[in-house]
Every structure is written in C-alpha cells, then in structure tokens.
Write a protein that binds this DNA or RNA. Structure first.
Lengths: 193, 193
DNA sequence: CGCTTGCATTGAACTAGGACAAGAAATCAA
DNA sequence: TTGATTTCTTGTCCTAGTTCAATGCAAGCG
C-alpha cells in the first residue's frame, strides 16, 4: 500500500525501513469521489496530497472569473497549494478538484513538523521535491511565452500522452492558456495528417 | 557586510549568532562588472548567488534563438539555475548575466552540504526560500496566461517600480512576454493620462 | 570630436488566436 | 429510454499583439 509513495520520496534521498515507517505512520489515507473540491479558493491549504490513484486539477480564478489550470496531478504526483497559505497567513485563490474517483495520502503541516524532527533527512527530500516543482513551473512559463498554441499542444501530448483520454478537452485548453474552441481547431488540423 | 544576507536568510527561520557565522564563513564574496555572464547556457550551474548590489537577468533561449527573461534579480534576491543542473546531470539552457556592476555572495553546492551538516536548521530556511520562488513563479505563470499586455505592464510597475529606470525596455518586454515595439506603444498610451 | 552601435518610437500590414453563435455528439440522471 | 446537461466542433467576424520597416536619439569608443 505504501510502496508507491515510498518509492516517490526515496527518489533523491534514500531512507531505511524504519524511517519510512515513521513517514508512513504520519500519512492519512483518503478516498474521494470525482468532482470533489479538496481546496476552495480563500481557504487555507492544510495538506499536501500524494495521488495514489486518479486525477485532479489545480486552478486559479482571477478577478473576472477567468479560470487557469496550473497543474494536473495524476498517479504518483503531489498536489498542494504551498503558495502563500502554509507559511504566511494569506488565503489562496487556488482551487483543487478531483476529476476522477481518487485515492490520496494526505500529509498535514503538523505531521510534516513531526516527521522533520524525528527524521531530519526528510527535510532534504522535500526540499528537492520543491525544487523539481519549481523547475517544472519555470519550464512551463517559458513554453507559455515562447511557443505557438499548436506547439504547446503537441508538447503537452508528449508529456502527458494519457491525459486527453482522461480529462475534458476544455481543461487542457485552460492548462495551455488557449480557448477551448481554438484547441478544437488545432486538433482538427493535426488529425488531417 | 553580512547583515543583508543574514536578514534575508532569517526571514522565516531564526538563527543564533554562531549559526550565522558558520553560514557566513561558507560564502564567497564576488564583485563583477556589468554585462558579465555568470552562467552560459549548457554549463552546469554550481552556485546560488545572493545579490548584495546590482541587477542581473536570468533567461532561456529556445531552439529558434528566441529569448525569454525568467527573472530579474536585484538587491537581496537570490539567483541560480536550480532547474535540472544541480541535482541532475543535464546541462541547462539558462543564461545569467549582470546588467549593472554587481556584488554577490556566492554559495556553492559543496558549501551548502557543509552548512546543512553543521547546522541542519538551514535546510529548512532554504526549503522555504524555494517554496517562495515557486509561489512567485506560479503567480507569474497565471498572470502571463490571463492578463492583457497592458495589465501585465502596470502590475509589473507596481511590483518593481524602480526597474524601468535601471534596465533596458526591451528586457522588460521580454520578461512580460510581449514584443519591445508593443511595449513602447503601451507606454505611449499610458502616458497620455 | 565624429562615428558607430544599440535603443526607443511610430506607422502600416498582417496573423494567431479570441468571442460569439449554433449545431452535433456524448454523457448523465432518473 | 428519454430528456437534460455538458462537451466538442465549425464557421464568421474581430482584435490584441506581431513583424517589418524607417527614423530619431543617446551613449560608448577610437
């Protein structure tokens, strides 16, 4: 049951059996139906969720109600809103919603503190995870600015080949920063070859 | 001399005098003229630089030679390419260049390791710094996708009121993801009120 | 001092992508 | 099964922003 998450956390730092057991004892397993909100804009985010099974989207809403998907998290990914909510007291404008029936391990800030005091090695592992998210987000920013919509979509397909079968197309459009209609036209054009 | 950087690192975690001295002893002070490359695309980035004085830009170049500025770092900011270079062995496509005469504290991965082993509290401080960079980058991604060019520019002015006097306008355009000409037109329009 | 080189501005022509509308297809609820 | 709701497609028109000049301006350099 814990093998997925243990493999994930051991990716850049190795832990012995005992350390992993401490870690696992601090996780809360949670099964959630599709279309459930894990976080509502304005709430404080008091978890980091590891996706065991299923798919969620994390999105912002701006002042005019315009929605932008920041992240799809599928199996073996982490999702949370670390932005300003855990360490500062500002509420976030971020929403997190399941798109399929999901299974998670929920990890709370309090558990995190406990973990770091009992097994400080984990601080390092979480720092590296954070670093990787930053790298991914920077890359995404670069692509968003410099590529055409068609390029962005074809690269998206390479990166997440299974997602178009799993999530609605207009969500993908929102992730890419283009309109749903235009994505449809792009697909149409691509299909002709 | 060390007060700026000590204040910066103590922002979310507090350290005693002794810990700060260990930290300071591991930094290398460096004075660099303007237009110097700190990192050339393809090189491994083996530092994190804290800007004591001056201004640098960090940018990507894509396959067609198109340049995008990811970050301006001015006084009291950190700049580095953590993306894939320090912990994985892929070279980065990131460039870092000084735009003014600069003073830095350079912090190497080896020093970082030493610091964390001597004073593990710092691991936490660096994790939080990382977290803040991620939050800032996510916000920037969101704005890039959802705002008009004019909005982006006026918000940029609020966030970095001093920068337009310090850096060339076409760099700001590149940061905002718009053409230099269009930024000029936006400024012209704004000036009319 | 003049010369070159880079930077900002402006205008005209062009295009990638958006907004709107309406129909077709698919999914869901009961 | 059927109606209802959501999703996807397609067409038309429209606009924010680009590209490509051309021009003026300021700065660094010999």
């Amino acid at each position: 049951m814990y093998s997925q998450i243990n493999k994930n956390i051991s990716r850049y730092v190795s832990f012995d059996q005992q350390e992993l057991e401490i870690f696992n004892s601090l996780l809360e397993f949670k099964s959630v139906p599709k279309k459930t909100m894990l976080l509502q804009g304005g709430e404080m985010c008091n978890f980091e969720a590891f996706v065991v099974k299923g798919c969620v989207r994390k999105y912002y809403i701006d002042a005019n109600g315009f929605e932008v998907i920041l992240q799809f998290a599928i199996e073996n990914a982490w999702v949370s809103d670390i932005s300003f909510s855990i360490y500062e007291d500002k509420p976030s404008r971020v929403f997190i919603e399941t798109l399929e029936d999901c299974e998670f391990f929920m990890f709370s800030p309090e558990s995190k503190e406990k973990l770091f005091s009992k097994a400080p090695q984990f601080e390092r592992a979480f720092r590296i995870l954070m670093q990787r998210s930053l790298a991914v987000t920077q890359d995404r920013l670069f692509h968003t600015i410099s590529k055409t919509a068609t390029d962005k979509y074809t690269e998206f397909l390479l990166q997440y080949p299974a997602l178009p079968q799993r999530v609605a197309q207009h969500y993908i459009a929102s992730y890419l920063g283009i309109s749903a209609e235009f994505l449809s036209k792009i697909r149409n054009k691509i299909a002709k070859y």
